[in-house]
């Protein structure tokens, strides 16, 4: 056992950091909450107006678009990236030749910021510059790929770019997990005559649970704060069809100098996140205590 004196520096450090982190976060969150009930425009003005900002927020169509996009984008992005990353990991785990080369290639997009990713995909998906023009120039005049400029599809165009960027991360994490799985399991299932896909789904995947959870948490955080990719790829357009909450909040804060309503939207984003995360946290605690 270390003496109290020896432990003191560690204790002080940990206490201070924890207090600072939680304190600053809580102060910031509560301040945002307070502001959302005021008339604040460019400069804080503590004139309380009750739920006026929220009423206006719910009457604003763009807010509804942004929040439903959050679920479309979040759902598609997390599930496709997980599935795709897992497939890549399995493929690389087959002891293929030039493994490190492929690993690098698949991981490469991650080294690019969302801004660069967005710009590159913007050119690629632009109907008059990118893929559509290329294929049409090859002689397929009817070919059409207009997701970027189609209000109904623009949000999925963002999903494509985001999946491309993040799949490598999932691959790397799950590959590490796959390498940690005992080879004897494969021998055992082979003896029992279980097909490989079944082994992956029913045996390996459950064993990778912690890794998968890590991926989900990382991807989910990327979803909530998604801003730069939208700005670079579509600027939220066409007609705000690919707007996301973070972009909505930042537009309101900086371009429109309407910090009161922006705070209300930020509080709604926090509520949404809590509503999604809370059941999982409750479940984990419940399991832990049992």
């Amino acid at each position: 056992m270390l003496s109290f004196r020896a432990k003191l520096p560690a204790l002080v450090t940990i206490t201070l950091t924890t207090v600072a982190a939680i304190g600053i976060m809580l102060v910031a969150i509560s301040w945002t909450g307070v502001i959302s009930f005021t008339k604040t425009q460019l400069i804080p003005r503590y004139e309380f107006v009750g739920f006026t900002q929220y009423v206006r927020l719910f009457d604003t169509e763009r807010f509804h678009v942004a929040f439903s996009n959050l679920f479309i984008y979040g759902g598609c992005f997390i599930s496709i990236t997980l599935a795709f990353g897992f497939l890549l990991a399995i493929m690389i785990d087959q002891r293929i030749r030039a493994e490190s080369l492929f690993r690098t290639i698949f991981l490469y997009p991650l080294s690019m910021s969302f801004i660069v990713t967005g710009l590159a995909w913007q050119w690629f998906m632009n109907p008059t510059l990118g893929l559509q023009k290329f294929v049409r120039d090859l002689g397929f005049a009817d070919f059409s790929f207009d997701w970027l400029i189609n209000p109904d599809k623009a949000i999925y165009a963002i999903v494509i770019a985001a999946v491309w960027q993040s799949s490598g991360l999932v691959m790397a994490i799950l590959l590490a997990g796959l390498r940690g799985i005992d080879r004897d399991i494969w021998k055992a299932t082979a003896i029992d005559g279980i097909p490989a896909w079944r082994t992956y789904l029913s045996i390996v995947l459950p064993m990778l649970r912690p890794m998968v959870m890590t991926c989900v948490v990382l991807l989910a955080m990327a979803v909530v704060k998604a801003y730069d990719l939208v700005v670079a790829l579509t600027r939220g357009g066409p007609g705000n069809a690919s707007d996301l909450p973070a972009k909505f909040v930042i537009d309101l804060t900086f371009e429109r100098a309407n910090i009161g309503m922006a705070s209300a939207a930020a509080v709604m984003l926090l509520m949404t996140t809590i509503a999604v995360v809370a059941p999982y946290v409750a479940y984990s605690f419940h399991k832990l205590r049992r």
């Binding site: 425009q41 169509e61 007609g239 371009e255 100098a257």
Partner: peptide
Amino acid sequence: SGDMMGAVHDALTK
């Protein structure tokens, strides 16, 4: 105001 300009922009672009 910046606020109204933004709201009108939203309506027009929609």
